[in-house]
């Protein structure tokens, strides 16, 4: 969406109100041979500086609040300030809801059924 709006100039507007966000995670398999190197990488990639740098490539919000202040401009276009396009930007994050796996594990079937019943009305 960010790309369509800013790089391709489509007339889209993001509505951040009520956004549902999800966290991405790193996992190290049990018994991994390179556990130390993996831990180093996780520490590196989730550091303030790296998360802020990631934001200049794609409009994914950094998981650290400390990254927010360091977000720069879009990698190919200096005129775009990425900070305002972050889902985690102060103004965008007011009414955000975290995706709850446990809720969906418990209720997905039932809600899908109700949704289908509602659709077929």
């Amino acid at each position: 969406m960010f790309n369509a709006k800013n790089a391709e100039g489509q007339s889209f507007e993001m509505v951040w109100d009520g956004q549902i966000y999800d966290l991405d995670l790193w996992v190290i398999p049990k018994g991994s041979k390179n556990k130390e190197a993996a831990l180093d990488f996780v520490a590196f990639s989730t550091a303030t500086e790296q998360l802020a740098a990631q934001a200049s490539w794609i409009s994914y919000g950094p998981a650290r609040a400390s990254s927010e202040a360091r977000i720069g401009t879009f990698h190919s276009d200096d005129s775009i300030n990425m900070a305002v396009h972050m889902p985690t930007a102060a103004g965008n994050f007011k009414n955000a809801l975290q995706n709850d796996f446990e809720f969906w594990a418990d209720n997905a079937d039932q809600l899908n059924e109700r949704f289908n019943a509602w659709l077929s009305k």
């Binding site: 446990e102 594990a105 418990d106 209720n107 079937d109 039932q110």
Partner: peptide, 9 residues
Amino acid sequence: NQEYPGTRS
């Protein structure tokens, strides 16, 4: 959970 939704977790 099929019988009583909300119990999976």
